[in-house]
Design a protein around this nucleic acid. Structure first.
Lengths: 248, 248
DNA sequence: CGGTTGCTTGAGATCCATCAATAGGAGTGG
DNA sequence: CCACTCCTATTGATGGATCTCAAGCAACCG
């Protein structure tokens, strides 16, 4: 209850979608209604395993989750990170089977949204449709940025860029401010996300600390020089298409 | 005119979408009608530059294109590769401005599809909607696979995996068979796609040739041992969700 | 033909992975 | 409340995969 209040009037999903379209009070009620089938999964628990059939859209209401692939050689790659308010699949179709697994990082609260229900909501309200499409666009932009990082950025740049990205995404749902945010992932998780070894993640983290850019104690990430961090990791603050946002 | 015949009855877009839904003759007419505003771009020419406003969905009818990011340090990362029949953006929304550039690799024939037109087509036919969503799903799966490759696969594995992926995608639109296909990209393009240097792409290509897996002369890629190549690069043939396909 | 572009090969440098060992916390059970 | 264990963070040393710089060559083209 401390990290993100879920009640009948709003939740992280709605808080995020407000940035994508000018939702009416009625729209918000419709969206919250989609999320009433809540389900808990413990930290590091499985949500859906690769090869399973999807039984509905998975929506993260609280906590952090991720999609990942477990490789034949024992390595793991996290494909996407899902924060509160994030939909784990595109909202218009369900695959016959998943080509990746979904797992919890922290304890998570999930909603399992039936595809027909969300489609009906999008049909009924052009603002909901717009917000959902905007969300899909943002998710795609985040994924593109990950490709760029993995392909062409150094370890420290990747790390810094990720920290900036998370800052922006968490701010959207009210879970971060200018000073920093809770970063409830292990260095091994970061390694699987960034395509690095845990040892090198640790050293890159040291570099960022040594450069006076961040502080990371326990699970709290604090910025000491946000502008400097953004510059050092070539982070472009406009990349989430927030210009279409209607801040509440 | 040799690579892919475009006429009033069918084109590469329709040929691909047939795999995603059971389209009627009427559906196919609707889809072809979307593509009549053809436009040519020369090899290596710009299609849309980063920061520009999108004026419609870009659809590749013939030739190869890509989306890429030009980095501050002079490096380039290709984010997605677009083959004949590929839509370069999700079909439900246009961003205010592009966070990446679109460029031609070979000479390309493009259609610029107005967003309202494609939305109307999807509204009018649930089969068209299904096919478009399937296409989006496949594109997302390809992008995920790229993330996995960049993060956790060796250079030779990345290359082999890409060659297998292209084989499958080109087969969908009738541009490849069991023996191989035309690969009209330079080694520098491959490097920017795979996050490698051109020198190392060359050496990895040599490795695959040396292992008796492929032949690459001129612009023709020929398989000498497709099963071996797939095994060596851990390629999963089911990953494009073709089980939902209705082969014609 | 000269110039350009793309492919190939060599040699040395660098970034990052791997292996290994230590230390600090958090939980657990006695 | 202590001993124990596990997990995570940290640091060192070594090796390997890939990059960068450099040069030669072949094909194409005006």
């Amino acid at each position: 209850m401390s990290t993100g209040q879920t009640n009948r009037l709003t939740n992280s999903f709605v808080r995020k979608l407000r940035h994508g379209a000018c939702l009416t009070a009625e729209d918000e009620v419709q969206l919250v209604d989609l999320t009433h089938t809540a389900r808990q999964v413990a930290a590091r628990g499985d949500i859906v395993l690769e090869g399973e059939e999807a039984r509905g859209l998975v929506l993260v209401l609280e906590g952090w989750a991720c999609s990942y692939r477990q490789l034949e050689n024992g390595k793991r790659q996290i494909v996407s990170l899902f924060l509160p308010g994030d939909l784990c699949q595109p909202f218009g179709i369900l695959p016959r089977f998943l080509d990746h697994s979904l797992g919890a990082i922290t304890p998570v609260t999930l909603a399992q949204v039936p595809l027909p229900a969300i489609q009906a909501a999008a049909q009924a309200s052009p603002r909901i449709a717009e917000a959902l499409w905007w969300d899909l666009l943002v998710a795609a932009a985040v994924d593109r940025e990950r490709v760029v990082s993995l392909g062409r950025r150094s370890a420290a740049e990747r790390l810094g860029h990720l920290l900036c990205e998370l800052h922006l995404r968490l701010t959207l749902v009210g879970l971060a401010d200018e000073t920093g945010y809770d970063l409830p992932v292990t260095q091994a998780d970061l390694a699987d996300l960034l395509g690095l070894s845990t040892v090198h993640v640790n050293r890159s983290l040291m570099d960022l600390r040594g450069a006076g850019l961040i502080t990371l104690k326990g699970r709290r990430l604090a910025f000491r020089d946000l502008a400097g961090l953004r510059a050092a990791s070539f982070f472009d603050t406009t990349y989430l298409h927030l210009d279409g946002a209607k801040p509440t």
